[in-house]
């Protein structure tokens, strides 16, 4: 953990306590030269504001879009990005890495 990782969780608590609807996305598995380690998080609110990173910029747009869905539906999702996948090039994970990202809404207060 770094202070930056801790800060995201603290901010998530602030958002939830102040009534902001939000989702967390977490890197759960990586292969190859993935840019961010397992456990890295991104916090997204229902307006698309976000903090943190799961890939150093490559797949953030898709993750944020999935997080917005999760805020609406409440359904968690497991996303996979990698070189074997055409979308990996499109979204920019061209570094040869592969990552799985778990997206979940923060529920109840």
């Amino acid at each position: 953990m770094t202070t930056a990782d801790d800060a995201i969780l603290l901010e998530a608590e602030n958002w939830v306590r102040s009534g902001r609807r939000a989702a967390l996305a977490t890197v759960v598995e990586t292969w190859g030269s993935a840019p961010r380690p397992v456990g890295s998080r991104i916090l997204v609110d229902d307006q698309g504001h976000f903090l943190g990173s799961v890939s150093g910029g490559c797949v953030e747009a898709d993750v944020i879009s999935a997080a917005l869905d999760a805020v609406e539906t409440g359904k968690p999702r497991l996303l996979e990005f990698g070189v074997a996948d055409e979308t990996a090039w499109r979204v920019g994970l061209s570094c040869g890495g592969k990552i799985k990202v778990y997206v979940e809404r923060i529920d109840g207060c």
Binding site: M1, L9, Y102, I106, D107, G108
Partner: peptide
Amino acid sequence: MLAKNLFALNAEIALRRPAILVTD
């Protein structure tokens, strides 16, 4: 994530105590 788990995790972090979040 349940808000109560988030708050409890932050409380452990503030006390510099290790904790694990287990997610199915």
